[in-house]
Design a protein around this nucleic acid. Structure first.
Lengths: 147, 147
DNA sequence: GGCTAACAGTTGCTTTTGTAACCAACAAGC
DNA sequence: GCTTGTTGGTTACAAAAGCAACTGTTAGCC
């Protein structure tokens, strides 16, 4: 089997990921001026509840400087507020403000609708299988960025 | 079905793409000091033969400024040389130098071996189906970057 | 208590990317 | 042959990402 670029899985994954992100990205950027890392942080807080920046890093496998700046940006937009944990003053638990919650709800709905359109060509079992395969690839024991 | 981040396809695709690229990226970076766009250009020339920068843009859906810089970098590394088309002096057909061909051959082998490991958990038909699904997602009629 | 190491988070600097404006060469209409 | 528009490709500037060093805080250990 000859090797060609459009069959090379990392390449294909990148092309698919980029195409699949483009439209949703345009939405949150136009509507809320958010960057990728910002909506990811917003979603982590919206879905899983309050957590510290480093918990976001661990869960999302994003580098801490990116999270730090994303949190600062979300704070400036008044979508997130941070407290200082009295027990351990290094920790700064983050939570969504009411405006942050509204933005999250809107984006979550948009995301769900977008995904439905994106995956309309797949049956439910096919989609499940695809997700499982992608998860497996994502958790490959390759070198991950440090937390 | 509640919406969660690790089920959101664009997110999953990104995580999988990043993880799947990481190791190969480390290889071409360490060995040839190449960037992502650079090896992509190299592979296009190696696989499909000589072409101009804008043909690379079209095939790979990469923005022309990125290609322009990648070509300049590959030229500086003496992996690529460019001529000027006498018919139409705007066109600059690119071709691999012997060193470029060697680098391409090495990277192609590394890529094939890497992919084999990466996809070892999939059967042939599963892999084919995955590729087809990713291709479909990649060619989604979403807004693509201009050429 | 005082020293060292580890951890949460930030800042500064460099590299890479994105965007738009730009130059040179050609094509078409007139 | 001269304008007008288009195309291939580059450059300049701004935004974002990566990396390493830094601050402040806690924990462990003697």
């Amino acid at each position: 089997m000859t090797f060609t670029l459009p069959r090379f899985l990392p390449y294909l994954l990148n092309q698919a990921a980029e195409a699949a992100s483009a439209e949703f990205q345009a939405y949150y950027k136009a509507r809320y001026g958010m960057l990728r890392t910002e909506w990811r942080v917003l979603f982590h807080l919206g879905i899983y509840g309050d957590m510290t920046a480093s918990e976001v890093c661990t869960r999302a496998a994003i580098h801490k400087t990116k999270v730090s700046r994303a949190v600062a940006a979300l704070e400036a937009k008044r979508f997130v507020k941070r407290r200082t944990d009295a027990e351990d003053r290094r920790n700064e638990p983050l939570s969504l403000t009411p405006a942050g919650t509204r933005a999250f709800t809107d984006l979550q709905e948009a995301a769900a609708a977008y995904e439905a359109r994106l995956t309309a060509f797949l049956s439910e079992p096919e989609l499940d299988r695809l997700r499982a395969q992608l998860e497996h690839l994502a958790s490959q024991p390759v070198t991950r960025s440090p937390r």
